[in-house]
Simulated assay, not measured.
Amino acid sequence: MVTFTARRGEPELVRPARPTPTETKALSDLDDQWTLRFYESIVGFFRAPPGEAPRPGKVARGIKVAVAAALVYYYPMAGRLRKLPGGNRLAVDCTGEGVAFVEASADVRLEDLGQPLVPPYPCVEEFLGDCGDTRDVLGKPLLFLQLTVYT
């Protein structure tokens, strides 16, 4: 079993690349279910293009630029959830505050994690940024991203 520790930088907010509408959008009945009020963790692994060594700063800058561009069109994701008055319904305040992004590095390669690479992943907690209580979704970024690059 492989073990490693990710070295994380400070979280930062990635905001939309351009101004976005400031409005409130109520969640649909499908989206506003108690059973969906938590952060879901997803881990994805990607290799560098052939012949190219990953440079942590360059990769992080590229992803932040791409996320900022996407948030222009998917601007509610840059907002915050809040409760609507007079009940327990939620809405998204489209504030443009941004999504959380953490840059991390680790001295582990994909090959070290085993083949085939399928869940449960070893040391999965090292690939996940800290979003605090995963059931506390009000007033926090809707998306937490951690980029972990092999060093």
Score class of each variant (00 low, 15 high):
2 V>G: 03
4 F>K: 05
4 F>L: 07
5 T>K: 12
6 A>S: 13
10 E>V: 13
11 P>S: 02
12 E>Q: 09
14 V>P: 06
14 V>D: 04
18 R>L: 15
18 R>F: 00
18 R>V: 03
18 R>W: 01
19 P>K: 02
19 P>H: 01
20 T>A: 10
21 P>T: 05
23 E>D: 06
25 K>S: 09
27 L>W: 13
27 L>H: 01
27 L>C: 11
27 L>R: 09
28 S>Y: 03
31 D>N: 07
31 D>L: 00
33 Q>C: 04
34 W>S: 11
35 T>N: 10
35 T>D: 10
35 T>A: 06
36 L>F: 14
37 R>T: 14
40 E>T: 12
42 I>Q: 06
43 V>G: 01
44 G>Y: 06
45 F>E: 08
45 F>M: 07
48 A>H: 02
49 P>G: 10
50 P>T: 08
51 G>P: 13
52 E>M: 15
53 A>T: 15
54 P>T: 07
55 R>P: 08
55 R>F: 11
55 R>N: 15
56 P>S: 11
56 P>K: 13
60 A>E: 10
60 A>N: 09
61 R>D: 14
61 R>S: 13
62 G>R: 09
62 G>S: 13
62 G>H: 08
63 I>H: 03
63 I>G: 03
65 V>W: 04
66 A>G: 15
67 V>P: 02
69 A>F: 01
70 A>T: 15
70 A>L: 12
72 V>G: 04
72 V>P: 07
73 Y>T: 13
75 Y>L: 08
75 Y>Q: 10
76 P>E: 10
77 M>T: 12
79 G>E: 10
80 R>C: 02
80 R>Y: 07
80 R>T: 08
81 L>V: 04
82 R>L: 01
82 R>H: 13
82 R>T: 10
85 P>T: 13
86 G>L: 11
90 L>P: 01
91 A>T: 02
91 A>L: 03
93 D>T: 08
94 C>W: 10
94 C>K: 08
95 T>D: 12
96 G>N: 07
97 E>G: 11
97 E>F: 04
97 E>T: 06
97 E>C: 05
98 G>K: 04
98 G>M: 06
99 V>T: 08
100 A>R: 05
102 V>A: 03
104 A>N: 03
105 S>R: 11
106 A>L: 06
109 R>S: 14
110 L>R: 15
111 E>S: 15
112 D>V: 02
114 G>Q: 10
115 Q>W: 11
116 P>N: 01
116 P>K: 10
117 L>R: 11
117 L>N: 14
118 V>P: 00
119 P>C: 10
119 P>H: 04
120 P>R: 12
120 P>N: 05
122 P>T: 05
123 C>T: 04
124 V>W: 07
124 V>I: 11
124 V>M: 13
125 E>M: 05
126 E>F: 12
127 F>Q: 00
128 L>T: 08
131 C>W: 06
131 C>S: 13
131 C>N: 12
133 D>I: 07
133 D>K: 07
135 R>G: 12
135 R>D: 13
135 R>N: 12
135 R>F: 14
136 D>M: 01
136 D>W: 03
136 D>F: 02
136 D>Y: 03
137 V>R: 00
137 V>Q: 00
139 G>P: 01
141 P>E: 05
141 P>C: 07
143 L>S: 07
145 L>Q: 04
145 L>T: 08
147 L>H: 00
148 T>L: 14
148 T>D: 03
